[in-house]
Amino acid sequence: MGRPQKPAKDGVGTLDLLILSRLAKGSIHGYGIADFINGVSDALHVDEGSLYPALHRLESQGLVQSEWGASENNRRARFYKLTPRGRRQITAEISNWRSIVDAVNRAIEPLKS
């Protein structure tokens, strides 16, 4: 029950980057983040089972912070925003992403016609 488990990252580890980059645009609640990610393209989808554990993990690591607020329709929701450390983390995540992309490209190079 509640073993300290490393929460599964999404695919190639992009969930953190996606969450952080949405929050870079401004603070929002969890549903809004899910909306954003799902809305970028049909190729991207996040399910709630991964999103909320990821959000909590980011908060426990000090990259985001959260507080209660009122949503557009006046419901109580937990709003997330970036911390300075989280802002710095985005750079690290971007370079990580870039190196993954480069690696995959190099791997499939011989297959490109």
Partner: peptide, 22 residues
């Protein structure tokens, strides 16, 4: 669509524990 909320709650707790131990 949301699925097993109990499991999700367990996993968020696990996320905090993980960071602590880690």
């Amino acid at each position: 669509q949301l699925g097993n909320t109990t499991r999700i709650k367990e996993q968020t707790l696990g996320a905090w524990r993980y960071t602590f131990m880690d």
